[in-house]
Amino acid sequence: METRLAINNVTKIFGTQYALEDVSFEVRSGEIVGLLGPNGAGKSTLFKIITGYLQPTSGSVNVCGFDVLENPIPCRKHIGYLPEHNPLYDDLYIKEYLVYASELYGLKYSYAQKRVNQMIQLCGLEPERKKKIQNLSKGYRQRVGLAQALLHEPDVLILDEPTSGLDPNQLFEIRELIRDTGKNTTIVFSTHILQEASALCDRIIIIHKGKIKENSTLTELRKRFIHGTTMEDIFRNLTAE
């Protein structure tokens, strides 16, 4: 399987503080990777570097063969990104927003129309399609955020806490959506819910204070569960102060 996303020795320094220190990992096509870590561990910073919003202090990121710093635009075409807190334009209608997103991806008109309608179906936005984004509940906002990220059939999907603040039903639906998408897309997402990571991911990366503490497949991790150890124990051991 080919490598879709390669992060090579990325370091990011804010002032004198290391937000990320020598982070390297690779994600292959079709893999779902969960990025875990306490608040402030550097997860969002890493995502911002992958999508080219922040520049790393040193190191490089490669998406589908394109270097993020040298070829930002082809890189971004391959990425679907749901930023932290899911920012949306509140005064637009759902469809209007998705059409705007498709135009920014440079999709052809007929294809864009088709995809927008597909995404409205797929993300379960049909009952709310006539509403403005500001009138949507948190769960539906999250679906709009996902719809926007999936619109152009990206090869790599970066989701920053896609399930934060959702109720159990919405959690289930969003997870199903992520699992379905993951069949033919590489996904990297961050979460605070450990069960979610173990339910969805092929591989788990735990990051703490800007360093990678653990990078193993779920099967490898499961081998350590034998003596009554749980995901929580592993997480707490690695990220304890």
Binding site: Y53, P87, L88
Partner: peptide, 13 residues
């Protein structure tokens, strides 16, 4: 509204 990050991660210069 933090949409600046969204906008600046679109494939446009």
């Amino acid at each position: 509204t933090r949409t600046l990050e969204w906008l600046f991660t679109r494939p446009v210069s």
